[in-house]
């Protein structure tokens, strides 16, 4: 990881929302860099504007001020993968049809997009479920579909918005292992949002801590921990405690 090349440069993002008479300042001067192929975790308390920040990166919302620059040119829709906090699967489509949606929009011939989709369905361990509807799946399986669908765009950048936030602890640990496996198979830049310190330390090549509203990035951590990381490890627990203290201070 010596030759870290900058892929995204975010400078001075501000964003507020107008609700009736009052305005709510959510992001205030968010500045950060994203390196190519790193697993960047953005850690922040609930309601601090994590989703808003990712939406701005994905182009779903626009910032009031500040800039987002991409080293390889601003991507069009369909060129950044997005995993939604609340899954956002199309309920009328099967698992396979959800995953191949991007290719369908691109008018890729049916046979080819089937193959592509099946590759990613196997990658997330859902083979056998390709003809199930989302309503038939558990939360963890739904998010696997969400992940497969995001990776199927074959984007260099995948944004994940608290993908495991709605899962129980057991499933959450499983999915963390899973996401690391997927990542070693498919090299991409991942920006992963969470409010869970342990999850951040388990996954991140680098961790950025966000403050409460109006939020900005207040700290950066680079865990020097060998993978696979154990949460019973001395160094793991130390880092977790440091971040917990900083987080209390930031609130």
């Amino acid at each position: 990881m010596a030759e870290a090349r900058k892929q995204i440069t975010v400078k001075g993002i501000c964003k507020s929302f107008q609700n009736q008479e009052q305005s709510l300042q959510v992001l205030q001067d968010v500045t950060l860099d994203v390196n190519e192929n790193e697993f960047l975790v953005i850690l922040g308390p609930g309601q601090c504007g994590k989703t808003v920040l990712l939406n701005i990166l994905a182009g779903l919302e626009s910032a009031d001020s500040g800039t987002v620059e991409f080293a390889n040119g601003t991507p069009k829709y369909g060129e950044i993968g997005f995993v939604f906090q609340r899954y956002a699967l199309f309920p009328w489509k099967t698992v396979l049809q959800n995953v191949e949606m991007h290719h369908k929009f691109q008018r890729v011939p049916k046979k080819e997009r089937r193959e592509q989709a099946m590759h990613f369905i196997r990658l997330v361990g859902l083979d056998g479920f390709e003809n199930a509807y989302p309503a038939q799946l558990s939360g963890g399986m739904k998010q696997r579909v969400g992940i497969a669908r995001a990776y199927a765009t074959r984007s260099n950048i995948i944004l994940m918005d608290e993908p495991f936030g709605a899962l129980d602890a057991q499933t959450r640990y499983q999915m963390q292992d899973e996401i690391l496996k997927i990542r070693s198979a498919e090299k991409t830049t991942v920006i992963f949002v969470t409010n869970n310190i342990e999850e951040a330390v388990t996954l991140g090549d680098r961790i950025l801590l966000m403050s409460n509203k109006p939020s900005s990035i207040v700290r950066e951590y680079v865990p020097e921990l060998p993978r696979p990381r154990q949460n019973t490890d001395r160094a793991f627990m130390d880092l977790r405690n440091v971040i917990a203290q900083d987080m209390d201070l930031a609130l």
């Binding site: 939406n55 994905a58 779903l60 069009k76 829709y77 369909g78 060129e79 950044i80 993968g81 997005f82 939604f84 609340r86 956002a88 699967l89 199309f90 009328w92 949606m101 991007h102 369908k104 929009f105 691109q106 669908r149 765009t153």
Partner: peptide, 26 residues
């Protein structure tokens, strides 16, 4: 949320209508 999902998957406006908004309204 589903409209956002359609957008990030690269749907053009016709596809947004026919593949996302319309099925969601069925």
């Amino acid at each position: 949320l589903l409209l956002d999902a359609g957008k990030v998957l690269g749907a053009n406006s016709r596809q947004m209508l026919l593949s996302v908004a319309l099925p969601d309204s069925i």
